[in-house]
Design a protein around this nucleic acid. Structure first.
Lengths: 106, 106
DNA sequence: TATAATACCACGACTGACGTAGTATGTCAA
DNA sequence: TTGACATACTACGTCAGTCGTGGTATTATA
């Protein structure tokens, strides 16, 4: 299980990746992160929801209400600005990998 | 330039890598991090020195005083526990790379 | 009838990064 | 000789992000 201080700085990117594949909502995003990471990372609920709030406040996602089986859901959609930010983060990631690799002994 | 929230969780590892190559002191560690990362990451002084304090408190490094050209220096040496911790972090890094790569679009 | 799964939110604690500022010595050029 | 720059740290307070705890509410299932 990966510790949070290492993922920190990529929670937003993970979420943006998922919503860039199609609109989604908190609970589902949470499960998808667990799946995509092969159970190596589980994002805590509070971390996820506060990240969603932050991302919306920053204009990277927008929300709308939906209903499913009598339960309310808040769906999120990525914005153009969110897509640009996501692409930047992907490039930054490639650089980060190279940099940290220099400090790692194989 | 890489943002700190991405490096967060690896500042300790970077420092441990440097002291594992030989005893060093704050100012030099700082310059080495800049060099090794090809100027892509500069650790802030306060971040570095508070990391050194933390690492010593956790028993991963030990310190001793030295003198050079009339200036005092505090040298740091990695402990066995520090070496073990560093190795763990290296393994964790390999896993982290795989996990985050799954959220990155090339 | 109770338990788990779904779906989310509020609040406060804690940690680590960082801005600002300060101390003190040595070097070197104008 | 004076001022700038490099060296070598330290103190203090702020901020952002993660997370523990706990709560609300509905549906499905055993």
């Amino acid at each position: 299980m990966i510790s949070s201080d290492i993922i920190r700085g990529y929670t937003d990117t993970m979420i943006l990746f998922i919503v860039s594949c199609g609109d989604s909502y908190g609970y589902e995003i949470s499960k998808q992160i667990k799946d995509i990471s092969d159970d190596n990372y589980v994002m805590k609920e509070t971390t996820l929801y506060s990240a969603l709030t932050r991302l919306e406040k920053n204009g990277f996602i927008t929300s709308y209400s939906g209903m499913h089986d009598g339960r309310k859901r808040t769906y999120y959609r990525i914005t153009d600005e969110g897509s640009r930010y996501y692409k930047e983060k992907c490039e930054e990631w490639e650089l980060t990998k190279k940099v940290i690799d220099n400090f790692i002994e194989v």
